[in-house]
């Protein structure tokens, strides 16, 4: 994901290299944050806060190899904080027209990717009944396609706990999909 040399340089306080690190890490951090929070602005805030935390604690990182896990861990924790601070109400409900667009995408008539707004709407709707832990496990496993071991090292949850949360999340989302789509 990131060249270990860049991380080493950043550890020595090289801001120019840290710019590079932000450029490389931000899309990954944003993807997880956006899918967990379902809000573009909040996700960008999380990315910013994450990068500042990384700069402050970069010396604590044991090896450049563990950087990816460490980055995701910070992102997930920041997302938990955001969820706790702002128990969001879904302000933007999908109207019939939007649902028609989404159905269009799913039926295969529209092969283009979902826009951020559409993705946020779907994720918000499908995951509104999930706890933060269930949401994080679902995003990391089913959307970011990470292994159980990777999720375990990011979230600190046991394998069994991850499987249980994932099972509940999938069941719940499956029911929501039946209901709305």
């Amino acid at each position: 994901m990131v060249d270990p040399q860049i991380i080493e340089e950043c550890r020595n306080g090289n801001l120019q290299n840290f710019r590079k690190l932000i450029g490389i890490s931000s899309p990954f951090a944003f993807s997880v944050a956006f899918r967990m929070l379902g809000d573009e602005d909040l996700a960008k805030d999380v990315v910013q806060e994450t990068m500042i935390t990384i700069w402050e604690k970069l010396k604590k990182i044991k090896s450049a190899e563990s950087y990816k896990t460490w980055l995701y861990r910070i992102v997930v924790n920041k997302c938990y904080d955001q969820m706790r601070i702002k128990k969001r109400h879904i302000e933007e409900r999908a109207d019939d027209k939007t649902w028609a667009i989404i159905s269009d995408h799913l039926s295969g008539n529209n092969s283009s990717d979902l826009e951020n707004r559409e993705t946020a709407m779907i994720i918000n709707l499908l995951t509104e009944k999930l706890s933060p832990k269930q949401k994080s496990v679902f995003v990391l496993s089913d959307l970011e396609e990470m292994t159980t071991e990777e999720i375990s090292s990011i979230t600190g949850m046991s394998t069994r706990n991850i499987k249980a949360n994932l099972h509940y999340a999938r069941k719940n989302i499956g029911e929501m999909a039946k209901k709305y789509l």
Partner: peptide, 13 residues
């Protein structure tokens, strides 16, 4: 299908 679509549609920063 929904999951596939969501996976494919990486949020754009």
């Amino acid at each position: 299908k929904l999951l596939g679509k969501l996976r494919k549609s990486k949020p754009l920063l």
